[in-house]
Each structure stands twice: as C-alpha cells, then as structure tokens.
C-alpha cells in the first residue's frame, strides 16, 4: 500500500515521505543506523547505485531496457584490476575498463537500435556475454589489484571536503547528466524518441542514434560504477556487479520513469537510489541474513514493477477518457 502512494506522489514528494518513514523505522529497530559513520556509508552505497541508475534512466526514458549493466560492472572491475595487478598505470587501466562499457554499450545499441532486435533478450544475451568474459579473464578467481592508486580512490579515508570521493563522483555525473537531459538538444531528443517514435520521426529525427548513444552512456556509467566497486576492496571478481541491473531498474521505476518511456527524469532516480540503498543498508543493519535480504529486496522490486504497470495502464485509460470528453 505504501508503495502505491509513493508513486502517486506529486513529483517525488511521496518518495521523500517514504524515505523519511523508512529512516524512522530503521532508526527505531537498529541502534547505530543514524550514526554519522553509517550515514556516510549509506551515501557511498547510494553513489554507486545512482551512477548505474542514471544510465538506466536514459535507457528506460527511450522505452528500452539494459539488463547488461551488472555484468558490465563485473567485466570492468576484472579488466581494471587485472591490468593494475600486472603493473599497468592507473590511468590506462581505468580507460581500458571504461572501454569495456563502451563496447558492450555499442553492441547493445547496434543490435537494438539498428538491427531492431528485441531489447530484452539482446541485453540479456550481452549480460551473459559480459559475465562470461569476466569469468574467463579472471579464471573464476578473485583478482587482487594490489594498487595503491585504486585503493586510494575507494579507501574510507579518501575524503574531500568532508565527503567521500565516491559521493563527489556520483554528484558530478548526476549534475552533468541532469544538465544534458534537461538543457541540451540531446536530452530533448531522448524525451521525444521515448514519448513517441512516430512523432520523433515525423519531426525529422533519426531515432537509431538515440538508442545507440543511451546504451553507450549506460555502459560507460556501469563501468565507472564497476571501477568504484573494485576500488572499495582493492580487488575484483566476476560476481561483483550481480543483481545491479535489477536494483537499477527498480530505482528508476520508483523514481517515476516508467517502462513506457518519454517521461520522468533524474531527480526521481536520485530519490529512488536513496530509498533502495536505505532499504538494503537498513536490512543489513537490523541483522537480516544476506539471503533473506535478497528475497525481501526481490519482493519489493517485484511489487514496484507491478505497481508501475498497473498504475500506468490506469493512467493511460484516464488520459484517453479525459481527452475524448
């Protein structure tokens, strides 16, 4: 019931209320939940999820999906850590990692945007391609990067103006993409293509370039998130990004960007990311076992998806009705 309200809220107001309720709930049940240390940790977790979800928002905005972000994170983490382990400098290692995201995004974009293959199955296939490559490269092992530079990014002490570097990176990406989406021709085009492919085409736009670019952006952002994840522990493994696609999709839906596309935006996604991270953090804090956390998060996500679909259909019907009368 609570979730329904969240989505109906006026431009994220409901979401804010949801977050506050969750905070109150968690602080009652978990003693140190509201501690400064945990709040900082929570923001760190939110940052990584937010970076992935920003890319996912753009993809869902054009009425597509990207299931491959989780495996892109893993692949990037593996590639970067393995290069670092073998003594490569941090900059080329990171560039190589991000290149993985570009390539997977390009492949997705080409297959979905140009070849017009089913976007669900295509990105599902690239998911297993990415994860498979990650497994092959690391040979199923955990890769210890042994890099002071990488460690420096993720370490708890790498703080700038009181906030962790992760938070600054996520904030920079978020603000930049917010600007791009709301202020530039590129962003406007995404809203048009997602709103109605036909209307966009009739206005003389080429839609395939939009699809390709959103998938590349999504891939790159997933790569960045993957590197940050790897830097946290200074190592990488092939399951590091597992499940992130689901968390990201749920974040975007909760944030008010529906599967139908053409509507919503990044502000909602930010709130969605805070909500999902709070839920995860809180469950951990209350002392629920990881596998039960997994189930609870899954159920929550499923409910969010169902509510999104039901709510959207009703809204569509109401709109037709209103226009006709």
């Amino acid at each position: 019931m609570k979730k329904t309200k969240l989505l109906k809220g006026k431009e994220g107001l409901g979401l804010l209320v949801g977050i506050i309720v969750l905070f109150i709930f968690m602080s009652i049940f978990a003693d140190n939940f509201l501690s400064l240390y945990n709040m900082h940790n929570l923001l760190k977790d939110t940052s990584i999820l937010l970076i992935v979800a920003v890319g996912m928002t753009l993809v869902i905005l054009v009425a597509r999906i990207d299931m491959s972000v989780g495996s892109t994170m893993s692949l990037t983490a593996i590639v970067t850590t393995i290069l670092l382990r073998d003594g490569t400098h941090i900059v080329p290692a990171i560039i190589a990692g991000i290149l993985c995201g570009v390539l997977i995004g390009l492949l997705n974009g080409y297959l979905v945007g140009v070849q017009k293959l089913n976007h669900w199955v295509t990105t599902f296939a690239t998911l297993s391609l990415g994860k498979g490559l990650a497994l092959v490269i690391c040979d199923g092992q955990i890769i210890n990067a042994n890099s002071d530079h990488l460690k420096a990014i993720g370490h708890n002490s790498s703080v700038f103006l009181g906030l962790h570097v992760f938070i600054w990176i996520a904030a920079a990406i978020f603000v930049f993409m917010l600007y791009v989406l709301n202020k530039t021709k590129f962003g406007y085009k995404l809203y048009s293509v997602g709103g109605s492919e036909q209307t966009a085409t009739l206005a003389g736009m080429k839609t395939s370039t939009s699809y390709i670019s959103v998938y590349i952006i999504s891939g790159v952002l997933a790569s960045i998130a993957g590197i940050l994840l790897a830097s946290k522990a200074n190592n990488g493994n092939a399951t590091i990004g597992d499940g992130y696609e689901f968390n990201a999709i749920a974040t975007v839906l909760i944030g008010g960007t529906p599967f139908a596309g053409g509507r919503g935006g990044l502000t909602g996604t930010l709130l969605g990311a805070v909500l999902i991270s709070t839920l995860k953090n809180g469950l951990r804090f209350i002392g629920i076992t990881p596998s039960l956390q997994f189930v609870i998060i899954g159920v929550v996500i499923l409910i969010v998806i169902i509510v999104d679909v039901v709510f959207n259909e009703r809204r569509k019907l109401e709109e037709i009705r209103r226009v006709e009368q």
């Binding site: 669900w120 996500i301 998806i305």
Partner: peptide, 30 residues
C-alpha cells in the same frame, strides 16, 4: 497471472520471480 492479467512484460515478470525464488532457495537451504 502477472503476465496475462496484470500485463507485466514476461521478461521482467519471470526475471523477478526468478530472483525471489532463488533468494528463497538460498535462504531456506543456507
């Protein structure tokens, strides 16, 4: 029911079920 009555896309519906059921397996079997 999710797919035919609520009109959730088959991919997302079954993927979600997969997640939850797998979680139950991990939880119960530990």
């Amino acid at each position: 029911v999710l797919i035919s009555k609520i009109n959730v896309h088959p991919f997302i519906a079954t993927c979600g079920t997969n997640w939850v059921v797998r979680g139950l397996v991990l939880f119960i079997l530990a």
